[in-house]
Write a protein that binds this DNA or RNA. Structure first.
Length: 365
DNA sequence: TACACGTGGGT
DNA sequence: TACCCAAGTGT
């Protein structure tokens, strides 16, 4: 099934110039100093939907804290989640931890070295499996990410929608026909090219090692490609947050174990009802019989991939004397709720959506 | 197939 | 401002 026409000259360019370009131009990154599959794995999970510059400090801290598989497997999940705090897509770190324990228990602590085994592990899909297998073990497999889809779509002047699975399949199969022996460098070279030269906007074609074989460049289509269906606009939700304050302690609740920001700590938050402040007061009434008057603190917006939270923030000052009577006044002290000293909130794993509300409190303390 | 799933950076 | 995008995976 020849989806594209491709000349021998173009194959030559992909097989040779791109890896050569890579060896001369690749960035010095912490996870490029090693062939340890554990470290490659951590870096690849962090790299999912995340720019490299963003993850580097996280990666360094993570490797320092969890230097090997055994350490990670033995760690408390809360400690691992804390190390991921601020990176987003937190299911990645849950699966990471799950997989570490799985390798310890089912694979005798020995990191699986082949693609087919890797993609069975939680959090490792076709891209990450290909990346680990090729980079750490030099297996002859592709690693097709967003960069590669863009680079190859342009190179072939392909107008297929890269959001569709069949496009990914076609490009993967095309790459398999030219995959060289140094598969890891080859895969990384295409990704690095996409990150440094063949960028989504303003591609640096004059500096591109593939320019002379690039069909999009020849047609002047490099800015139009790749084709990608527009994403649906995120849904806006009107939310209310209540910050319960008692004797310089803040009240937090733990979120559900599934769904958005699963299992992370949070201020009490509800969707707004007709009467402003009513829904959050009703919620907090479940935690204390002595809910004081709400004080409006201000507004915040938090944009997720698929949701926008428009948040109205209220504070509620409980009198300090209630401290001795928390049980009586049914402020629960189990692991689903807690009061934390206002300057020690770092003990909790708090999503950015809530962390950025803390400055609203400062003028009122 | 389509959607859920975070956050920060760039234009 | 409002969008798009980023070394994707799970359901």
């Amino acid at each position: 099934m020849p989806a594209f026409n491709i000349s021998n000259a173009q194959i030559y360019i992909l097989q040779n110039n791109s890896p050569n370009w890579f060896n001369k131009n690749k960035r010095s990154l912490p996870f490029r100093q090693t062939k340890d599959p554990y470290q490659i794995w951590i870096s690849e999970i962090m790299a999912q939907q995340t720019q490299i510059d963003t993850l580097i400090p996280y990666y360094k801290r993570f490797i320092e804290k969890f230097p090997d598989l055994k350490t990670l497997a033995a760690a408390e999940e809360s400690a691992v989640l804390k190390a991921w705090e601020g990176l987003g897509y937190y299911s990645r770190v849950r699966n990471l931890h799950k997989t570490a324990r799985l390798i310890e228990s089912d694979y005798d602590g020995c990191f699986p070295s082949d693609y087919q085994t890797l993609i069975k592990l939680p959090g490792i899909g076709p891209y990450t499996g290909g990346a680990i297998a090729s980079i750490a073990f030099n297996e002859a497999v592709t690693a097709v990410d967003g960069n590669v889809l863009r680079v190859i779509s342009r190179f072939l002047n392909s107008h297929l929608d890269i959001g569709e699975n069949k496009t990914k399949k076609v490009i993967t199969q095309w790459l398999e026909t030219i995959l060289p022996a140094n598969s890891g460098d080859f895969n990384e070279s295409l990704m690095e090219l996409g990150a440094l030269i063949c960028s989504p906007t303003n591609p640096q074609c004059p500096d591109c090692p593939l320019r002379d074989g690039c069909q999009a460049y020849a047609q002047g289509n490099q800015e139009k490609l790749p084709i990608k269906k527009k994403k649906i606009r995120p849904k806006t939700m009107q939310m209310e947050v209540g910050i319960l304050i008692r004797d310089k302690h803040l009240f937090f609740v733990r979120r559900d174990q599934k769904g958005l920001l699963a299992g992370m700590w949070s201020f009490p938050i509800v969707t707004q009802t007709d009467e402003p402040g009513q829904a959050i007061s009703d919620l907090l009434n479940q935690y204390t019989q002595h809910l004081p008057q709400a004080q409006y603190l201000g507004h915040s917006r938090h944009v997720f991939t698929h949701i926008i939270w428009e948040i109205e923030v209220y504070s509620f000052y409980l009198p300090a004397y209630l401290k001795e009577e928390t049980a009586t006044y049914s402020i629960k002290a189990d692991d689903q709720t807690c009061f934390i000293p206002i300057d020690e909130t770092d003990r909790l794993t708090l999503p950015v959506a809530f962390k950025k509300l803390l400055p609203l409190l400062e003028p009122h303390l």
